[in-house]
Amino acid sequence: MIIIKPQYFDMFWGTLGTVRPFPNFYPDRDAADIQAALERKGTGRVGAERSSPDPDALKKVLSGDLEELLLQLVMPPEQLEAQRLKAAMAGLGTDEETLLEILCCRSRKTLQEVAAKDLEKELKAETSGDFARLVVALLNKAVTAGSVQRDVQALAASLSGKKAEAGPWINILTSRDSNHLDKVLMELELETGQTVDQLLEKHFSGDFRLGLRVLVQCIQNPQVYLAQRLLTMKTSLVQGIMVSHSEEDLLPIRAAFLRLSGSSLYSTLQKHFKGEQLLALQAVCRSED
């Protein structure tokens, strides 16, 4: 027997997500629908819209990208993000930008639950130097109060020597709320006469510069940053981002995608995917813009 449960226990109407509680949830009926879908392997739309079929049952009839997508849909957010982080560190080389996307865009609550899965050691093993310090600080970020003027002075002073100091950037950008940091970054640009991106280009390099750039983009407008990632239409990115943000803020990400590309996410998916995978992604996307 396939056990069905509501997919998102603590969601509520009025969120900016696209996956929401199903108003007429009948476990027995939905279990029968899922069972029939599995038997005919037509699982895309059913699995994405409201119910969580048993993962073992899905694995028996699915494979490849569709299997990965539907398994992601049945995971709690912290489990999904932990899996994506592990995948970004697997094999030769590390997918630094996916690490940054998750660590910079996800809520403190979700990251606290991810951190409980002992990922800090893996992050330290796969990264080094200032970049390692940054990603670990992001994983364990805790918001503390600060003075805008003092933070601006600390960041400006860190750039005044022969070699820029990474510490203030890590400490301040990972420990203040986004509204505070918006003010800090605007004041820093006024004080230095340069954009933040110009400052980062001039004073930092490598993975650490990439990390600060992604962090700044996510402070200023995370939905635009995620929409830019979706423009690649790379399967792992599209599935990971859409599922990860489906219950919280996929609607503003869709709006940002439309502004950036001139086409809706829903229509763009049709050009790059097909079959059950397309049906599942469009069910997560929910509608045309």
Rank of each mutant, 00 (worst) to 15 (best):
R45H: 09
N24A: 06
A115I: 12
G240D: 04
D197S: 14
V46N: 01
A145K: 14
T98W: 01
I102Q: 02
S51V: 06
G262R: 02
A116P: 09
T94R: 09
S205G: 13
M186K: 10
P21L: 13
A227G: 03
V135A: 08
R40F: 02
R133C: 13
R176W: 01
P53E: 11
T18S: 08
L258K: 11
M233G: 03
L159F: 06
G240T: 02
L73H: 11
V61P: 08
A256R: 00
P222S: 04
I253H: 05
L85S: 10
Y266F: 03
R286A: 09
L123F: 08
Q223W: 01
P222I: 04
L85G: 07
V143T: 09
R84K: 11
Q7N: 11
L159E: 05
S63C: 05
F273D: 02
V214E: 08
E201A: 15
L251M: 06
E49K: 02
S263D: 11
Y8F: 15
T127V: 13
L71T: 10
S158W: 03
V214R: 05
F22E: 03
T192Q: 14
G129A: 08
G262P: 06
L210V: 15
L139G: 08
P76R: 15
Q194L: 14
N140T: 14
S160Y: 11
V143H: 00
L199N: 12
L71G: 07
K121C: 00
Q282F: 05
S178Q: 13
A227D: 00
Y26C: 05
I4K: 04
D151M: 09
E247G: 05
P21M: 10
L210Y: 02
A115N: 13
E96N: 09
R29V: 04
R229Y: 06
R20V: 13
P252V: 06
R259M: 00
L99F: 12
Q270F: 06
Q7I: 12
L69R: 02
A36F: 10
L260H: 06
S147E: 13
G193M: 14
D289C: 09
K41D: 07
A255Y: 04
A156F: 07
A31C: 09
N24C: 03
E120K: 15
Q194E: 14
G211V: 15
R108K: 07
K60D: 12
V61M: 11
D130Y: 10
V284H: 00
R84M: 14
C285M: 05
E97S: 09
C105E: 03
L210A: 10
G146V: 08
E120R: 13
L173K: 01
G42V: 07
E68A: 10
V284W: 02
